[in-house]
Design a binder for these strands. Structure first.
Lengths: 211, 211
DNA sequence: ATTTTTGTTGACCGGATGGTCAGGTTATGG
DNA sequence: CCATAACCTGACCATCCGGTCAACAAAAAT
């Protein structure tokens, strides 16, 4: 019976690992229970750590929540990379839909936390909405408007197109439970996710006269 | 100085009025704070009643919440009346979009409570999802499929069309705060709501080949 | 080897929250 | 007018939750 071979962890390593563990657990619990319904004790249990340890890394529940929301916002924004540097609307918007559907599938908890945050009046990321998101939105609107002016799109309102893109893609995460229930109680399969993405793409791209 | 002329209220009247008052306050508070974040005290304050009075009409917080969610579900379903008895997809789906956008505008709190309930796994209305909603959905899918077979619609997946209708319309309520922020911090005007409804209608109806 | 810094944790605390209850007031039926 | 039933509410209670802390363990620095 050999002794435990695990070498002592480095400090930085411990920090990184535990923070990751806590943030992952927090994302899940906040998504499933809401901010008010989530308790530090439950998050600690999910993370497999004593509650006091959570407060060592994140002083308060609010600060922990803030980190979770900020991390999600990053992912949210980075999905926009697909939008840029696209030759035309079919590629740009198509890629954006693909990226956002992928996020809905890979980060359903994050999407729900984000939705919850916004629904409750964005108490912690209001400033981001007014700065980063607003700038981002104006930028995309300009791109879409250029496509319209070039005759590549029907003369729709770019703003409402963006809302529709957000709504339809995030719906598959935020209302995933409802969709699963209507799918005989089973999660969507790979093929069904692909079909969903194609449906969204087809209807929207045709709807804006890009096809 | 004449005496107070208000005639004594009838019992039934009192009940109806107070329940309405409480349910309205509860809807608002649950929407803004979530189930866990809402407190009976705050709901009581908003309703303008002592907390103990709430417990007289609704024994527990959970039961009060249940009533709020059920009431919303009713409204949700009744919007479907627009769908039926329509000669074709343009009228049927068009009217449905109009009805749901109207609901998003008139009952933003209700929509948020509903979204929250589903996001948290539908703890109180799971049975409704599996029965009433499932039946309703199957019925509409059949109608849409008939339109497709008749060549009135492109061959899209009716299920994903429904999801898109729900997502896009409810987005204007659930993410109303975000939309308002992106609208220079001001609520949408009458004209903007009309434009939003038209945008959604145009893109979707063209997207499914109904125009 | 010793000290110092960083990480770990059970036990504890004050405040808030859902819910109760006893004693009141007001309508209604006889 | 009386009795009963429905309605109202301030005060109270048990529980739970976020957060603290003191004492300890492990790694790093000296």
């Amino acid at each position: 019976m050999t002794a435990d071979q695990t070498r002592p962890m480095r400090r930085a390593e411990i920090r990184r690992e535990n923070e990751k563990l806590i943030l992952l657990a927090a994302e899940k619990v906040f998504a499933e229970a809401g901010y008010g319904g989530a308790t530090m004790q439950i998050i600690a249990d999910v993370a497999g750590l004593p509650k006091a340890n959570l407060h060592y890394y994140f002083p308060t529940k609010e600060e922990l929540y803030r980190r979770v929301v900020q991390d999600i916002f990053e992912i949210w924004l980075h999905a926009a990379d697909s939008f840029d540097a696209a030759p035309g609307p079919v590629e740009g918007i198509g890629a954006y839909i693909t990226a956002k559907m992928e996020i809905s599938r890979r980060h359903p908890y994050g999407s729900k936390v984000w939705a919850s945050e916004v629904m409750h009046g964005a108490p912690v990321i209001q400033d981001y909405l007014e700065t980063t998101l607003r700038d981002w939105t104006e930028g995309r609107i300009a791109v879409i408007q250029r496509w319209i002016n070039a005759g590549q799109l029907a003369p729709i309102d770019p703003r409402h197109l963006l809302y529709m893109l957000w709504a339809t893609t995030q719906h598959y995460a935020d209302f995933g439970h409802q969709i699963e229930t209507l799918n005989k109680g089973k999660p969507l399969t790979d093929a069904q996710w692909k079909a969903a993405t194609e449906s969204v793409k087809t209807i929207i791209l045709r709807g804006i006269g890009a096809l």
